[in-house]
Amino acid sequence: MQIVANIVVLTSLYALVASGYVLVYKVSRVLNLAHGELMILGAYLLVATSAGITSDPLIAIALTAVFSIIVGLSVYLLLMREMTGQPVLAAVLTTVALGILLRGAMVLIWGPQQLNVASMLSFENASVVLTDSIRVSTASLWLVICTVVVYLGLLAFLHMSRWGMRMRASGQNPLLAAQRGINLHTVYALAWTLSTFSGSIAGVLVALDSRLDVNMAVIGLKAFPAALVGGLDSLHGALIGAGVIAVLEVLLIHYVNPLLSDVVPFLVLIAILIVRPWGLFGTKEELNRV
C-alpha cells in the first residue's frame, strides 16, 4: 500500500507543476520552459522572506505567495508582454533564456549549497501514519491537499468565473476575444501570475519536504512529460498525465530497474507525440496552430 501512497504523492507533485505549463499554454500558446526555475524561485523567496522579513513560518509562507504573484506578473509585464505578436518560437526561446538567467541569479544570490528550508522555518516534517502500512511526510500530505485545492480552484475559476471564461476565450481565439473587448494583456498576465503561483506552491512544498538547491529546477523538466502526455491545453489532462508518469516511475523503481524510471517517462512522451501529438486530452486543432 505504501507504493500507492508514493504514486499519489508523486502524481500530486507532477500535476501541480504541470498545471503551470498548462495555464500559460492554454491561454497564450507559449510553452514556458522556465517553469522549473520559477518553481524553485518560489522556494528561495520563502528562504529570503524567513531570513530577512519574518521568522513566523505562516507569515513567511503568506508573504512568499504574494511575492510569487508579483514575480509572475513581472515576468509577463517586463518580458513576455514584449513577445506578443512575435513568433511562438521566439517566446519559447525567451523562456529558455529566462530559465538560464534565473538559475544563475539564484546561485549568485543564495549560493550553490543545499538549504534545509524546513529547519530554517522550524517546520517539523514529521512522518504521518495514515494506516498501518502507509506513512507519508507532513509536507507530502500538504502537497496532495494543495494539489487538490489548486485543481479544484482552477477548474472552478476557468469554468465558472467571468475572468476564467475570458481566459479560455482568449486561448481559443485571441482575435475574436480581443474584438469582443477582452484585454488580452490582462488575461495573459493573469495566466502567468497563476502559473507562477501554483509553481511556487510546488517549489515551497518540495523544499520543505526534501531541502532546496538550484538543481531542483529539473523537477520542472520531469513534470513536462506529464503536461504533454495529458495534453498541453487540458488541465484535467495534466492531472491524468501526471498519474500515468508517476505510476510508471514508481512501478519501474519497485519492480524493474530504478534507472529506467528516469528514461521511460520520456519514452512515453515520444510515443504519445508520435501517436497522438496533441496528448490524451489536448485539442487537436489547437496543436496544429502551433
Binding site: S140, N215, V218, K222, P258, S261
Partner: peptide, 14 residues
C-alpha cells in the same frame, strides 16, 4: 537513484 530524481521515497520504500 538517477540524477535529478524528484522524490526519493519510492527508492526508500523498496
Amino acid at each position: 537513484a538517477p540524477p535529478g530524481t524528484a522524490d526519493y521515497t519510492p527508492f526508500a520504500t523498496k
